[in-house]
Computed example of a mutant assay.
Amino acid sequence: MNSIIKQVKLIERIDQLIRLEATGSPEEFATKIGVSKTKMYRMISIMKELGAPIEYAITLQSFVYAEVVGFKFGFYVKESSPANQFRKVLTY
């Protein structure tokens, strides 16, 4: 699997656990996602650079989002517009 795809899948898993407030301590979190603590912090840093308001809540023993955010990566089909109805699609 391509390196970027692996990283996106890892970010998706991190996002899921943060939303569930189920990361545990940094050590537990790294174990849950199957990476070193250093890599886990590196991925959180990348997510923060992308605008994720990630904080660690000591009382919950979990990383959390300080604000409600969404994350989506990938392609999806948009609703058709009249201009797109007449476009010819070539398949290879």
Score class of each variant (00 low, 15 high):
10 L>I: 04
31 T>F: 05
67 E>Y: 14
77 V>H: 10
77 V>Q: 11
88 K>T: 13
4 I>F: 14
45 S>I: 00
39 K>L: 04
63 F>G: 00
69 V>G: 03
14 I>A: 03
18 I>F: 03
11 I>P: 00
58 I>Y: 14
57 A>M: 06
70 G>H: 08
52 A>Q: 04
79 E>V: 07
65 Y>K: 08
42 R>D: 02
31 T>D: 08
54 I>S: 03
64 V>K: 13
13 R>S: 03
28 E>C: 03
75 F>H: 10
16 Q>F: 13
48 K>Y: 09
50 L>Y: 05
8 V>T: 14
87 R>S: 06
81 S>V: 13
72 K>D: 07
56 Y>I: 05
68 V>G: 07
20 L>V: 02
50 L>D: 01
56 Y>E: 05
10 L>P: 01
63 F>E: 02
18 I>S: 00
37 K>Q: 08
66 A>C: 04
84 N>E: 15
18 I>N: 03
9 K>D: 11
47 M>D: 01
32 K>L: 15
42 R>Q: 10
3 S>H: 03
46 I>E: 04
46 I>G: 05
80 S>P: 13
52 A>T: 05
3 S>M: 10
53 P>Y: 01
66 A>H: 04
8 V>P: 05
2 N>R: 11
1 M>S: 15
67 E>L: 10
41 Y>R: 07
60 L>A: 06
83 A>T: 13
23 T>I: 04
92 Y>R: 06
16 Q>N: 09
33 I>M: 09
77 V>I: 14
54 I>K: 11
31 T>H: 06
84 N>V: 14
4 I>L: 09
